[in-house]
């Protein structure tokens, strides 16, 4: 469960807020959406939740994830996964190594088993040793999602992850991501400016 309580962000040393304070909850398995035109502070909001906020900004209010107050925690201890609009797969690793990076301290056999399992779910069986540069855009996007989820985050942030994909791929990938989130049963927060990306019946918050 993610709870935002009067969360607002302002420039350090400046009273102006980027948007009016936000308060809402996201239940496990649910995808909430935050919408607004570009430049309204969507990505900054995600940075505040993920723990990567630049020093130029100051966040106030509360972010509570499964009873943990996030705002004072360093990024490394928040257990928040992020999907960016770029897949950000590490170019010097192959598919298996990228996925292995997200896995915790598990044995080699266990790691291999789980990687094979998730690749199969994503219809990428046998892609373990593939070089990142040799994957198609859709394949990369899927590996990127798998990687985020293998880290077992308690919350997934989606920073316009579909915007760079072409139309046909986009719908398919969207369904894949939402299904994965449902299966993991974690809350997710989607930032987008495209209504098509928002799942049916999801709560939508506009930034002002």
């Amino acid at each position: 469960m993610l709870e935002l309580n009067q969360l607002s962000i302002r420039f350090s040393g400046d009273a102006r807020h980027l948007f009016s304070p936000l308060s809402f909850e996201v239940a496990p398995g649910e995808v909430a959406a935050v919408m607004g035109p570009s430049g309204c502070g969507k990505s900054t909001l995600l940075a505040a939740i993920a723990g990567t906020l630049s020093r130029c900004f100051t966040a106030s209010g509360e972010i509570v994830l499964n009873q943990r107050q996030l705002l004072k925690l360093p990024q490394a201890r928040r257990r928040v996964g992020i999907l960016f609009q770029d897949d950000l797969l590490f170019p010097h690793f192959n598919v298996e190594q990228n996925l292995r990076f997200a896995l915790g301290d598990v044995s080699r056999d266990e790691a291999e088993r789980r990687i094979a399992q998730v690749l199969e779910q994503a219809e990428l069986s046998g892609y373990q040793q593939r070089d990142i540069g040799h994957l198609s855009g859709g394949q990369r996007a899927r590996v990127s999602v798998l990687r985020s989820l293998l880290a077992e985050p308690e919350l997934l942030l989606l920073d316009e992850p579909f915007s760079k994909l072409d139309k046909a791929l986009r719908a398919q990938f969207r369904e894949f991501v939402f299904a994965q989130i449902k299966a993991m049963n974690i809350p997710a927060l989607l930032v987008t400016h495209d209504h098509d990306d928002v799942p049916h019946a999801a709560q939508v918050h506009a930034l002002q």
């Binding site: 990567t52 490394a76 201890r77 257990r79 992020i82 997200a102 915790g104 985020s148």
Partner: peptide, 9 residues
């Protein structure tokens, strides 16, 4: 950011 969100180190 992606890396730290993945392995927390």
């Amino acid at each position: 950011q992606a890396a730290v969100s993945l392995n927390h180190r």
